[in-house]
């Protein structure tokens, strides 16, 4: 089922990218990044079935990085909300020239 897994993974990754480009809510953009990580994990697991279980070890590491990223990222979003009272990225444009 390698080809099917790669198909599902490619579609999910693209949905994540389009979500990042079209949405303006910081939390939803953050969840789209998680969706992209999940799509790549599916590729890792599919290849692990064909090339050996070492690929699953990388899924383990990706999950750890995602958990760390969620903790720090959501703390940043809360700090941002305290400052600006919004998580809409259209209103957070301090660095825009």
């Amino acid at each position: 089922m390698l080809a099917e897994s790669l198909f599902f993974s490619a579609v999910l990754f693209t949905i994540g990218v389009v979500g990042v480009l079209t949405r303006r809510n910081a939390i939803i953009i953050f969840m789209c990044v998680e969706l992209m990580l999940n799509a790549v994990n599916l590729t890792f697991v599919a290849f692990a079935q064909v090339y050996g279980a070492a690929g699953q070890v990388f899924v383990f590491f990706v999950m750890t990085v995602a958990a760390a990223e969620a903790a720090v990222g959501l703390a940043i979003i809360i700090a941002l909300f305290r400052h600006r009272q919004t998580v809409n990225l259209s209103n957070i444009n301090l660095l825009k020239g």
Partner: peptide, 25 residues
């Protein structure tokens, strides 16, 4: 795809922990 442990981790860590933190925020 024969990755039973990763499947369990997906439910526990992603659906169980990370998404709960998102919903909490």
């Amino acid at each position: 795809l024969d990755a039973h442990f990763i499947g369990a981790m997906q439910v526990l860590v992603y659906a169980g922990a990370i998404m709960v933190v998102f919903l909490f925020v």
